[in-house]
Amino acid sequence: MQSGTRLGFYLLLTPLVLWLALLIVIPHIDMFLVSLRERVGVRQYETSFANYLTFFTEPLYIWTFVRTAVMSVLATIITLLIAFPVSLYIAKIARGRLGQVLFVLCLIPFYVSELVRTFGWMILLRETGLVSNLLQWAGLADQPVEMLYNDAAIMIGLVYTSMLFMVVPLVTTLESLDDSVIEAGYDLGGNGFSVLREIIIPHAAPGIVSGSIVVFMLSLGNYLTPTILGGKDSLWFTEMIYNQFIVRFNWELGAAFGFMLLILSSLIVWGMLKLTRQSLEETMG
């Protein structure tokens, strides 16, 4: 590098390093250190794994942790199953402008705050809500039905909220699949099912992986949807982190919880990338 570009290099490097060091790397190290502190007196701490021990010995914490993970995986699978046919339709079947219009229609709801979307489901599902009224009107129920505050409501909300992040990568990868390849599949004697299994799904794999990673992350880290649609006892892990930090002011235990959530999400993302032999650079970048 010449001296002129060398100066330019450091000028460009500085904001990146400041950002990553001060807002990402050091805060996470600090959070880890705080999670290793055990309070033994007023402003007196000892280094120990006590907070992690609390996490692993308290059934409620472990149960919530596992439950959050399982529900997030489930939400990811449901989102994928619902989004795939839609993406295929937008990318390959809809003719002309229809595909573009449908794609934009898919995007619009997600420019609206998650709070608004969740509020919409609340109006629909609650005891005095539309669905309950509809059921009574149709004679399927003889009194108001409460459909909020259960796992199904949480699931509906999570799937709805994540839909876009599945549809966009799927549509992008499916659009890059040449029609003639599908036609060749049929010419060679394939039927709809075998073409789907042998050609379309393998081609869409990168989109499936990046969509699934993002949806899983968003579900795991979601606070709003489980709290509003699941009610006070929705047992979502982010709620426990919030409670430890803001309500109980037990930052040490909260930091340990945060770290566990980080490990869980990293493990699953890493596992999915390994399983499909992709790297974070290709999937996200």
Partner: peptide, 14 residues
């Protein structure tokens, strides 16, 4: 790929 709430608490702690 870091959950938003974890980003929040790590910056809060730091």
């Amino acid at each position: 790929v870091i959950p938003g709430i974890v980003l929040g608490i790590s910056i809060l702690v730091f």
